[in-house]
Amino acid sequence: MAITFNQEDHPDSVPHLGRYPLMVNLIMGNTRLTKVLMDGGSGLNILYASTLDKMGIPHSNMCPSKASFYGIMPGKEVIPLGHIWLNITFGQPDNFHMEPLTFKVVNFPVVYHALLSGPCFTMFMSIPSYTYLKLKMSSPKGVITIKGSFEQTYYCEQDCDA
């Protein structure tokens, strides 16, 4: 199924073209998350411990993970609390795509609920448009379009600067 972006995808206005990241709503496990950063340049799916807590998932559900990584906190090594597998669902009840993904769980304050990376884009065969702040993917019932929010990303940016 062809995935395209055209004039219909263009928002009424684009404040600060190219300035905001693609942030989407999705269902992780059984919880709707509203501030998930889609970062195609990253190689790891990250879930923040505070999000795991808000979801009511006990830390005992994590598997141990001693492999550290770099790039989230500039110049600092990050050692995850562990990793966890969770189902991710994009779309609506009448047209959705669900896949299990593994997340490194980290414990530091952020404004996002989670970060989904390049391997997630591959798993869902999704195509981002950072211009339109949209993510599209195929499903058995047609193309799913996930709309980002310029307003939501603006508020997250303000929280980061505070």
Rank of each mutant, 00 (worst) to 15 (best):
V78W: 01
D94F: 07
A2R: 14
L101S: 08
S138E: 15
I88W: 11
D159N: 14
W85S: 03
Y20E: 12
S60G: 01
Y48N: 02
P21A: 07
A2C: 10
A162R: 09
H97G: 13
L133M: 12
I79Q: 05
I27A: 09
L133T: 01
K35W: 11
M125C: 13
Q158D: 14
K35F: 11
I84K: 05
M125D: 07
M28E: 03
P80G: 04
L22N: 00
L115W: 02
G29K: 05
S117Q: 05
A67I: 13
Y112F: 13
S42P: 00
P93C: 05
P58A: 05
S50K: 14
S129D: 05
T153I: 05
T131S: 09
L37K: 01
M123H: 15
H10R: 15
G41A: 09
P11K: 06
H10P: 00
E151F: 14
G56C: 02
G75S: 08
T145K: 12
H16A: 04
I146L: 12
S129I: 00
L37W: 12
Y154P: 03
I127M: 10
C63T: 12
S13L: 07
H59D: 00
V14G: 00
V106C: 13
F121A: 11
I84C: 01
E151T: 13
M123C: 09
H59W: 07
S50E: 12
K66E: 14
S42I: 06
Y112S: 03
A67T: 13
P74W: 07
Y155N: 09
T131G: 09
K141M: 08
V143N: 04
I144G: 04
L37M: 08
V24I: 11
N87V: 07
Y70R: 12
V78M: 04
M123R: 15
C156V: 09
F96P: 03
G82S: 03
N30T: 11
G29F: 06
M73V: 14
S68D: 12
P119L: 07
E8P: 01
I3D: 01
S68I: 09
F150L: 07
I127T: 08
E77P: 04
Q158C: 13
L135S: 00
L47Y: 06
K54P: 01
T89W: 09
S139P: 06
F96I: 00
P93I: 00
S42Y: 05
Q158V: 11
K35P: 02
N95S: 07
N25I: 14
L81Q: 11
V111R: 08
I144D: 08
P74H: 10
N107G: 04
S149R: 12
A162E: 15
I127L: 07
S13C: 04
P15C: 04
H113I: 02
V106P: 01
N95T: 05
N25S: 15
Q158R: 15
T31W: 14
T34H: 15
I79W: 02
F150N: 03
L44W: 05
V36H: 03
Y20D: 08
K66G: 08
M62H: 02
R32T: 14
D12C: 00
